[in-house]
Write a protein that binds this DNA or RNA. Structure first.
Lengths: 211, 211, 211, 211
DNA sequence: CATGAATGAGGTTTCATTCAT
DNA sequence: TATGAATGAAACCTCATTCAT
């Protein structure tokens, strides 16, 4: 990655034709593959292009630079996971904590583990200069949304709801990250879901004041 | 970083003269500084050497390659934190959970925040190919030690102590990492300690069976 | 040349466009020129690239490393000389020694001296780690081919044909090498051809048993 | 080897004390060892010093630079071989060719093979910029001496004695070099001596005119 | 005299990016 | 639009040599 500076990181063009869309998808998939097979350090634009079956030039038609490529992959992943969890949250709002929390956790774990490789490999990307801000922004939004969500619990009120949301969010993602980066087994992952529930509920019930 | 492969990562020579020790310390400090000021991507051996006030050649007299440098910095940090927490653990073993857990959490938070910059910046390093294994090994040891530690609680027994230790460890480090990487305020950090205690105690008391 | 190890030494890509072929040729020629003007010790990839009028990056598109470059130049030279001598050998097989030997010697001398500079300069390269094996293999093949060749003489048989071929080959190349490395005059070179003939025929006739 | 330029290549000081002589000898031996074990490319002054059990600084007390070191090693080898052969030549001058030639060849082969490793490894050094001139000079002298020598044969006269000496010298060294560089077996070496004799005598008798 | 820490120029190699075809 | 050859800055690392101790 040559000079970071302040460069446009948005995708260069919106593919309108079917062929273009196929190319973008191929590049996306190739990026994950290379990340998986070679690691972030050895991910080069040429390697991605080769894996995608196109030339470098073509890659640069869709992404102005390498950062934008990683940025794009990251974004797409977070949008997918975010959308799924938001949907679940909307469905269980305004119910007791014991209903809300397990549902959200199940949703997050399901989504993250449905494409384990993608999730795992993107933790590495999330430390990239470019992706960092993106992740920060997403987390900030997530915490705000969680705070709203927790506030709807029919059986609990929280004094410092920002902090509570923050802890809830981090307590969820900490173990998940460790598990995915470490290459957890599927058995362990199912156990993880229950323990995460226990962890979060234990915390929230401690912090909650009856409504 | 050229080709990772299987290279010696140990420090190249043990400094014997006083001058040498000063040089090694300067390099160490410079590494943290550069990491802080420029980020991992822009950390180059030349920049580190310059900041340390020595030549590249000198740097390479003590570290066989860039990875070893990062490796060394990482190791020193983990050893410091680990030693402090172990000491605390030894001091509060064989007491009730409500005594043990807050003590350990306070110790970890104190240690991590006593040199916030170092802690923060090393999260980035921990993803480096070379450091990865080092971190994995340390975490594995830590979990084992924690399992032992939890087993000494005078008022609790755990069915799946490995998993419990794992969750405890991750629940501690997840929020800490987010807080340090995000640049938390000192006020928030003190609040964090209490919430971590709440998080972990909530979980452990849920999982514990009376003894 | 960093670490020899076991690296791919083959040319990296086969040039497909006309422009590419011109580039490869330029690099080849530049290598000889630099070898001639600066010597092997001062042959650097940058110098070769500059002399070829391309950038280093371009050089590395065609040769994966410096060794491969020298390797390539060596190979091309040996193939040219080898092909010429083989052709001559095929033409004079199954005739008396007095016909066969002078023909082969004339062919070798002609070929080596047709591009004196190239020949001369490549003796230095032949000691390079990478080229060494190449040369060994070529010599081994050459000796085997010579043994076959000598066996077809209509007026002679040899008891230890391998040793005889070995001596013939070395007796030819020893003086040639000294002459070329020392920068022999053209007059001396023509004289050399006759003396080489005398040297080899003298030896072979001594070793030969009538058929 | 940094900048060749025109530097003094002579040994820096003549060791007068016994301890000094031992140091010089150790350095000499270490140079051969490193050459043998690592090759010319990986011969560094530090490695030589380490192997010799002294510090680099000490090495530089005796040799002004790396070239001088190689130069010195080369020279000592050539002087040893040269002295032995000269002695033999002096002993068999003024006798028939059939007496003179086998004696000289036996002497040369014996000397070169008495320390095969040293001989072998120094062929690589002989191509070094610095050593090159040294070798040239020695060869020139050798050829002149051989011409004188051949002129004393009681049963032969040569028309072009310079050329004859040149061929004789090269015919001897060509096969020897190939054999030593290739790592010949001792059985092959004894066979080599006879064939060299045959090669040289065959040539000389062809070129000789009766006296 | 000996030591070995320090120097820094210079070598090899990679890779994001451009642009003529 | 697609291609892939070309670019060249910049990274890592080595090693001959010096000099304070």
């Amino acid at each position: 990655m040559a000079r970071p500076a302040a460069i446009a990181l948005k995708a260069r063009k919106q593919p309108r034709q079917a062929r273009s869309q196929a190319t973008v998808d191929a590049i996306f998939e190739a990026t994950i593959q290379v990340l998986l097979g070679e690691g972030l350090q050895r991910l080069t634009t040429i390697r991605v292009a080769e894996r995608a079956g196109v030339s470098v030039g073509t890659l640069y038609q869709y992404y102005p630079n390498k950062q934008a490529l990683l940025f794009g992959v990251m974004q797409r992943h977070m949008e997918r996971v975010g959308a799924a969890v938001e949907k679940t949250m909307a469905a269980v709002e305004h119910t007791p904590l014991a209903t809300m929390i397990p549902a959200v956790i199940a949703s997050l774990v399901r989504e993250k583990t449905s494409s384990i490789d993608e999730s795992r490999v993107l933790y590495a990307v999330s430390n990239e200069l470019g992706a960092r801000d993106l992740v920060r922004a997403a987390e900030k939004y997530a915490r705000a949304r969680i705070a709203e969500f927790l506030a709807t619990a029919t059986d609990a009120r929280f004094d410092d709801i920002e902090m509570t949301a923050y802890m809830f969010f981090s307590a969820l993602n900490g173990p998940l990250r460790v598990a995915l980066e470490g290459g957890a087994s599927s058995k362990m992952l199912s156990s993880l879901r229950d323990h995460l529930t226990s962890l979060c509920l234990g915390y929230l019930e401690r912090e909650a004041r009856p409504r």
